[in-house]
Design a protein around this nucleic acid. Structure first.
Lengths: 336, 336
DNA sequence: TTGTACGCGTTATCAG
DNA sequence: CTGATAACGCGTACAA
């Protein structure tokens, strides 16, 4: 006796088909023992026959749990397409979440409307927790997460959200370290191509650069752009050359920016690293694709994803999570 | 009177708080008129006061609709990270889905376990429809979609799934066209770096190449690799040079492959395009990043995403969808 | 070992 | 215009 036309079979149908009660069917469905071999066999046959598939809306309603974790990506179009770390973070998160038998659900925020829709999705009980990537401090999605106390973790370190743990890297000390090594190669006039100063990563990298230069810091040698992009690298490097033609060292806020800068330097007839030494940040696919290969800071992207997932899972298990800062390494190659 | 500790407020709580019935609350929640101004005001105040947020599990259960659309990405790690089209497809799909007030939910399949989990997610009634990217013909996810008759659309054109509409491009004629133009530049010995021959895109590009060459086709000049990757380009080009040192034209199955091939050619001391003319496919970010810039086929990735989303939405609206093939353009640049 | 009955939070259908 | 009340499909004490 299949269910009425087109509708999906329910536990009720299976029970009727097998000549048992719904309770018994539910028990075999959830592997909760106490079912006779005979009943189990009949029920399993019935399940196959009526093509039963569980209705999760009903299940979630009663269990108050969805076994799904959100992964919210909050980037402007272009950056989302270009950012090499985001994919690795995603895969790392997915690995841990899957291991815990949950389903990762990626939500992309690409406009203000999206932010509103994703917020209400999160509030709507579709997920048990969420990993937030590159959220700004003031952010509709973060507001929602905080308000409904959804177990969550940031990748990065937005200020003003003490209630949500994060996993980050120490951008400032990494930038300081990298700049110092660049100084150590004997460069005299070192500039910075800064990016995304509205975000902790961008601001901290600039701070680290400033730290390393100390009294030698000259604000005229810092040119900034809103995004970590190849295009930004071309533009800011061009501007930096205009301001200071005898520049001989450059710290680019990301590998993509560095790649663009190298292009601009080539156009201007400068040789890398002979005339100008340049370093990047991220150790992304760009780094090896550049000519010459880029000296840069390696970001443990997949590990960050894994750590963030663990932070969320911990909260689901009732444990109190604490933010983590992962170590980075300078990778010295030919560009400086 | 707020709900018991920690639990979320329900319609019931709101109703009690406002001194009306649940029915009335539901009516203002869903904007379904027929509510006195006074009642509405009291209810709205109550909603704010108790911090009510809708429970979608319950709502979905009764409405049999989730307002969510799945976007299933089924690629090996590396390809997922490198593929430039996938982001644009995603954004295109998201735009249309959001416009229709649905939420796009991205599901990444990265292992056999993932495939099983995503399948059961799809069957579980978490989404009303799905867009499937780069699914193979034999695929657990596609099986599930077909079995439960989930409204869906493929990007690409997997064989053997006549019940699911797709949006694709005519890889074969595009490849034929591109190869012909390469021939037209006077190249004599033209080889192909094929990839992903287990997929329609890869196989069709090879077929188009073969078409264009006609009797001049020499199977020794075709070297293939499993993935559309930079690495594959380096390796297959190296092999092609070994087989045929006096090669003077190359059709690479994708821009990434072409970029790798250019690297291999440079290593071997050949000049592009003077010694060897090379063309790619996709018009991805690689194309302009290569030196020289790549002649290639432009894929309307965002449009493909939009079309696929429309296909799914059409089915949700009860319309019968039909597959679409989008036009491509050859973009002639300096590499050939 | 099995069946019964209740509750999860909404929306929808009716009388009033 | 409003308020009961019945689904929606499932898990689970509790009784048998």
């Amino acid at each position: 006796m299949s269910p009425r036309g087109g509708a999906r079979a329910t536990v009720h149908d299976v029970a009727a088909h097998a000549g048992v009660s719904r309770g018994t069917v539910s028990r075999v469905l959830n592997g909760a023992g106490y079912v006779s071999a005979e009943a189990r066999a009949r029920i399993e046959a019935a399940i196959a026959e009526v093509g039963y598939v569980r209705n999760n809306a009903a299940r979630n309603l009663v269990m108050r749990k969805t076994w799904a974790i959100g992964f919210v990506v909050h980037e402007p179009h272009q950056l989302f397409l270009e950012d090499p770390n985001i994919g690795a973070i995603l895969l790392g998160t997915n690995a841990v979440v899957a291991e815990a038998d949950h389903q990762l659900v990626v939500l992309v925020v690409d406009s203000d409307d999206d932010a509103a829709r994703v917020s209400s999705y999160l509030r709507g009980g579709f997920v048990d927790g969420a990993v937030l990537v590159s959220a700004r401090s003031h952010d509709k999605v973060a507001d929602a997460v905080e308000q409904i106390k959804l177990p969550a973790a940031f990748i990065g370190h937005p200020e003003g959200r003490p209630s949500i743990p994060y996993v980050g890297i120490d951008n400032r000390s990494a930038a300081r370290h990298l700049t110092s090594r660049l100084l150590g190669t004997g460069r005299r006039r070192i500039g910075m191509l800064a990016s995304a100063l509205d975000r902790d990563s961008g601001a901290d990298r600039l701070a680290g650069f400033t730290d390393a230069l100390g009294s030698r810091f000259d604000e005229r040698l810092v040119v900034s752009a809103p995004l970590y992009s190849y295009r930004a690298g071309v533009d800011t490097m061009t501007e930096l050359l205009r301001r200071e033609p005898d520049i001989d060292g450059v710290f680019a806020a990301s590998d993509a920016v560095a790649a663009g800068a190298i292009e601009a330097l080539r156009t201007a007839g400068r040789k890398v690293p002979d005339d100008v030494g340049i370093v990047g940040f991220d150790d992304s696919a760009w780094a090896l694709r550049c000519n010459p290969p880029l000296t840069t800071v390696h970001q443990p992207a997949a590990d960050m994803g894994r750590a963030a997932a663990t932070l969320v899972l911990d909260q689901l298990a009732g444990r109190t999570p604490s933010s983590v800062t992962l170590p980075t390494d300078v990778v010295w190659r030919e560009s400086a």
